[in-house]
Simulated scan of single mutants.
Amino acid sequence: MLEVSGLIKKYGKQNAVNNISFSLQGGEVVGLLGPNGAGKSTTMKCIVGLLRKTAGEIQIAGHDHLSVAAKKYFSYIPETPHVYDLLTVKEHMQFIAQAYGIKDWKDKATELMEIYDLTDKADKLGRDLSKGMRQKVSICCALLPDPQVLFFDEPMIGLDPKAIKNTKKIFKELKDQGKTILVSTHLIDSVETIADRIMIMKDGNIIGNDTISNLKTAFSSAGDSSLEDLFLELTKDE
Rank of each mutant, 00 (worst) to 15 (best):
T217E: 14
V29R: 01
G26E: 14
D146R: 02
K45H: 14
G49I: 10
I198S: 08
E28D: 05
S226H: 07
L144N: 02
K175F: 00
N15P: 15
T185W: 01
E228T: 15
K136S: 04
V30C: 05
L187M: 13
G126Q: 00
G56L: 05
K168M: 11
I212Y: 03
K175E: 14
K10T: 07
K162T: 12
A163P: 10
T167A: 14
L182K: 00
D237I: 10
I115E: 06
L7I: 02
P145V: 09
L227R: 03
T180G: 05
G62Q: 07
D189P: 04
L2V: 08
L234D: 11
I207F: 12
T235P: 10
M113Q: 04
S213L: 13
G204A: 01
T80C: 04
V89G: 00
Y73M: 07
D210T: 09
E192Y: 05
M93H: 00
Y100I: 07
F152Y: 02
H186Y: 07
N166F: 02
D229Y: 03
L230F: 06
V30S: 13
L86C: 14
G6M: 09
L87F: 13
T110E: 09
L150Q: 01
T167D: 04
V30I: 09
L87S: 04
L129T: 00
R134G: 10
L143W: 05
L87Q: 09
S213V: 05
L125Y: 09
S5Y: 12
H82Q: 10
A218E: 15
R134K: 09
K71P: 02
H82V: 09
K71Y: 06
D104L: 04
Y11G: 15
P145D: 13
F152K: 02
M201D: 03
V68G: 11
H186K: 08
T110R: 11
E154A: 08
F22V: 12
H186N: 13
